[in-house]
């Protein structure tokens, strides 16, 4: 039954399905904003890689982005709450409108029901006023969200900050590479050579494996070279392995730790 026909106009207009759709959308937006913010916080939070002087700009920019997302998230939540309240009120008011429409329809053609009609019209006006008041609250919340977005939009350019920070970091990395790449690669090569020779030790113990040409060369140049060469030639899977203990990589040994002590003494300390 259409309220306009009996009440003159609909005192409580509102599309409940559209409100439900909007509420669901807002929930999804809040979830997405929250997840994005947590991801950003984890990126620059305690335990992240992004620490140190050169990373500070990036950390600040990302933290600022997280803060802005929080502002938007809070504003969306501030809209979602009155929307939920609006929905509850809308249902109640539209039920009331239906009742008023029904009662007014029952009074049609009754010449002695003017007093009752007047009362129903007054109640209809009151209902319309409540509806408009609630709608105004919702409009205020929507305007607050709009204002929050405007404020964020007017803040310093986040993209430019990020670009500046990334450029600075890239330059610092390039300077690092220019100064340290060659010594680092030499050290890497030394480690690989030592590992290669040590792998030959495993073969000597009896493990299946290939003795590298470099290991053979070291053997040839060693004291008692012919005995080393013989051992290398006879090594490998053909050699009986000693009784092997079960692997236990849990416990720590401090012997190497002690040997490493003092190595850093001659290097630059942090300022």
């Amino acid at each position: 039954m259409r309220p306009e026909r009996f009440l003159g106009s609909d005192p409580t207009p509102g599309d409940l399905a559209a409100v439900d759709l909007l509420a669901a959308d807002l929930r999804e937006v809040v979830i997405a904003l929250s997840a994005g913010r947590r991801h950003l916080d984890a990126l620059v939070g305690p335990g992240s890689l992004w620490h140190g002087r050169e990373g500070r700009g990036l950390v600040e920019a990302v933290s600022d982005m997280s803060r802005r997302l929080r502002v938007v998230e809070d504003a969306v939540v501030d809209l979602a709450r009155p929307l939920e309240s609006w929905r509850t009120g809308l249902v109640q008011r539209q039920e009331r409108t239906a009742s008023l429409t029904e009662w007014m329809s029952q009074l049609s053609g009754s010449p002695d029901a003017d007093e009752r009609r007047t009362a129903l019209r007054a109640e209809t006006s009151e209902l319309a006023a409540d509806h408009e008041l609630d709608a105004a609250s919702l409009t205020d919340a929507a305007e607050a969200l709009s204002l929050a977005m405007t404020v964020i939009h007017d803040e310093p350019d986040l993209a430019a900050d990020l670009e500046r920070s990334l450029t600075a970091l890239t330059e610092a990395v390039e300077q690092w590479v220019a100064a340290a790449a060659q010594p680092l690669l030499s050290a890497v090569q030394s480690v690989e050579d030592a590992a290669d020779l040590t792998a030959a030790v495993s073969v000597l113990v009896g493990f299946d494996g290939e003795v590298s040409p470099q290991a053979h060369a070291v053997g040839r140049s060693s004291t008692g070279a012919h005995r080393v060469q013989l051992a290398l030639q006879q090594a490998g899977a053909a050699t009986a392995l000693p009784d092997l203990p079960r692997a236990n990589f849990e416990r720590a040994d401090v012997s190497l730790a002690q040997r490493l002590r003092g190595l850093a003494d001659d290097d630059d300390a942090a300022p």
Partner: peptide, 28 residues
């Protein structure tokens, strides 16, 4: 003897470079 001589050769080859330690495990 062969093993010991090779270990000695390795220690000389690794020398005074950046390598602090090299080790191997032989386990099950």
């Amino acid at each position: 003897e062969g093993f010991a001589l090779f270990l000695e050769a390795v220690s000389r080859a690794v020398g005074d470079g950046p390598v602090v330690a090299t080790s191997f495990c032989a386990v099950q």
